[in-house]
């Protein structure tokens, strides 16, 4: 039971993890992007269309990443250059992406694609329990869990990461010390969008293997909440995404085991859990929250 819940958690947590990691990068640079919800959709849609046209899921993933990045560029422009409200701009982006993907993706609802196939890691996938748990997924799943430590290294042990965090913490100081703060913020938001795009690719190319409008179903919003839950740390984001995925999987598995709980009640648990997590960790969060975000999250207006 535990193994299958964890397996489900890893599987269902993957798109959320991509989106969360992307949002960690953006928020570390001081930009909140609720538009990840839209960037996921754009990625799912662009990835699906490209795969349908080229038969290549790899090109599909690339297109998803590009499209997600492009969508987030709009947000970066709005908040960095025009200085619009971050939350509102993110929601505007979400609306726009929802509309555009429903329109553009419409002819592809019926198309069958060459999906991203599972790839068992040779040797390791035969191990008892862990083999199935960790080593019999698709490339995008492995990618997500490898990416987390990579982003952690980049954020905390490279010059780039330092610059990014500096911009997120003390934008004025960073600017005064000669950092191109706007460029850094643009880059961070676009990187976040790229990852959200890949999250979408996982949804449409590997997980559901089909395109339906609005198929992100709030995963982007969850990602934004999980970033706070993970206190802006890529490794804790893994924990958050897997827990969220596991709760999601658990509520489905509980039903299959014949426990007569209302599915609607069970569906609430991931959201309530996230909310409780935010509450319990509120103090720790405030401590680690990038200074630049305080204005967005805690400031009034």
């Amino acid at each position: 039971m535990l193994a299958s819940v964890l397996e489900g958690g890893i599987r269902a947590g993957t798109p959320i993890l991509y989106a969360t990691l992307g949002e960690v990068i953006a928020e570390r640079a001081g930009i909140v992007n609720l538009g990840v919800e839209g960037a996921i959709l754009v990625g799912a849609c662009a990835g699906f269309i490209t795969t349908a046209q080229t038969q290549s899921p790899l090109l599909g993933i690339a297109a998803a990443a590009l499209a997600g990045g492009a969508a987030s560029l709009v947000h970066a422009f709005m908040v960095v250059t025009v200085r619009a409200n971050q939350i509102a701009s993110g929601l505007a982006l979400m609306f726009l992406c929802l509309g555009v993907t429903s329109f553009v993706g419409r002819p592809y609802v019926a198309v069958k694609i060459n999906a991203v196939a599972p790839l068992a890691v040779p040797g390791l996938s035969d191990l008892p329990v862990v083999g199935r748990l960790l080593f019999s997924h698709d490339v995008l799943v492995y990618g997500a869990y490898l990416l987390a430590p990579l982003i952690w290294l980049i954020l905390f042990y490279t010059k780039w990461g330092l610059a990014l965090r500096a911009v997120g913490e003390r934008q004025a100081v960073a600017f005064a010390s000669g950092l191109p703060t706007a460029v850094v913020q643009y880059a961070a938001v676009v990187c976040g969008g790229v990852l959200a795009g890949v999250a979408g690719a996982h949804l449409s190319l590997a997980y559901a293997r089909s395109w339906v409008e609005g198929m992100s179903n709030g995963r982007g919003f969850i990602a934004v909440a999980l970033v706070i839950f993970a206190t802006w740390h890529p490794l804790r984001a893994v924990l958050g995404a897997v827990i969220f995925g596991a709760v999601f999987a658990l509520q489905l598995q509980i039903q299959a085991r014949g426990v007569a709980l209302s599915p609607y009640f069970l569906d609430m648990t991931p959201y309530l859990l996230t909310l409780v997590g935010l509450l319990l960790l509120a103090r720790a969060q405030r401590h680690t929250m990038p200074e630049g975000l305080k204005e967005v999250f805690e400031g009034l207006k």
Binding site: S4, E7, G8, R11, A12, P15, L203, Y207, A208, R209, S210, V212, M215, N217, R219, F248, A249, L252, Q253, A256, R257
Partner: peptide, 15 residues
Amino acid sequence: NPGKAAEAANALIDL
């Protein structure tokens, strides 16, 4: 809800 349906299918196969 494609994502959820896929996870449900996976969960059933796991069982």
